[in-house]
């Protein structure tokens, strides 16, 4: 029966347990990608083999499905003798793929700062460190917050794919509940509501950051 309150009361704690794993995975991925993406973006900005390598990395991870990357890490590594847990493989694949997207966001942000801003800073006699921390970075941060928010939402949704490598997060738990209870409507409702809550929270957090970091331009 749909909207069985007793059932929902039993389902919700189980789904929330899964939500904990989802949130852990998403927060770790976002945190790692913020750093890793920056490293890749800087590497891509250099001339020579390093820049070439970073560019190739970005194209490869962005043009192959996350699921294939996850299978490669999960099954491929264990065949090679250094098996990772489902959670670790999922995290690695999520960071690999999203690192490429985040690097592109950083690149766009850095390119959007006009050369005149650098010239003006130098003309004022700023040191390189002062120039970057007081002139360039504030503008970059203000511009990358909206795309970063979108990417974070997409990361939260992408975490559902680790269900394919048997990590017990929202998606996997709801699959188990559908198969054992046959109450598909309620499980779907619960899972969808939790994902909606998580993605809305992320977009709200993004909007708060936007208000905090944007200034009149």
């Amino acid at each position: 029966m749909p909207f069985d309150l007793n059932f929902l009361a039993r389902l919700l704690p189980a789904l929330l347990e899964g939500a904990e794993v989802t949130v852990e995975l998403a927060v770790l991925t976002i945190a790692i990608c913020l750093v890793w993406g920056f490293v890749v973006a800087l590497a891509q900005a250099t001339r020579g083999p390093l820049g070439w390598l970073a560019g190739g990395y970005i194209q490869i991870v962005r043009n192959t499905p996350l699921l294939i990357q996850m299978y490669l890490v999960y099954f491929g590594f264990s065949m090679g003798g250094f098996g990772l847990s489902g959670f670790a493989s999922g995290l690695l694949a999520l960071c690999m793929q999203n690192g490429g997207y985040v690097a592109e966001i950083y690149r766009g942000g850095l390119q959007s700062v006009s050369p005149r801003q650098y010239e003006a800073g130098r003309a004022l006699g700023m040191r390189r460190w002062t120039l970057y921390t007081t002139v360039v970075l504030p503008q970059v941060i203000a511009r990358i917050i909206p795309p970063m928010t979108n990417q974070s939402i997409s990361i939260i949704k992408d975490t559902s794919q680790v269900a394919a490598i048997a990590v017990m997060e929202i998606m996997k738990i709801s699959e188990v509940w559908v198969e054992t209870s046959a109450n598909t409507y309620d499980v779907f409702l619960g899972a969808a509501l939790i994902y909606l809550a998580l993605t809305s929270a992320a977009s709200l957090a993004g909007r708060l950051c936007e208000r905090r970091f944007t200034f009149a331009q």
């Binding site: 794919q161 998606m171 559908v178 598909t184 969808a192 994902y195 993605t199």
Partner: peptide, 22 residues
């Protein structure tokens, strides 16, 4: 838009798989 963009595609696919026949 809010609904569709807030829910993972995998969730929609899986539940369509279970729900559409019902």
């Amino acid at each position: 838009l809010l609904l569709v963009r807030g829910i993972p595609l995998l969730v929609l696919l899986t539940f369509a798989y279970y729900l559409l026949p019902l």
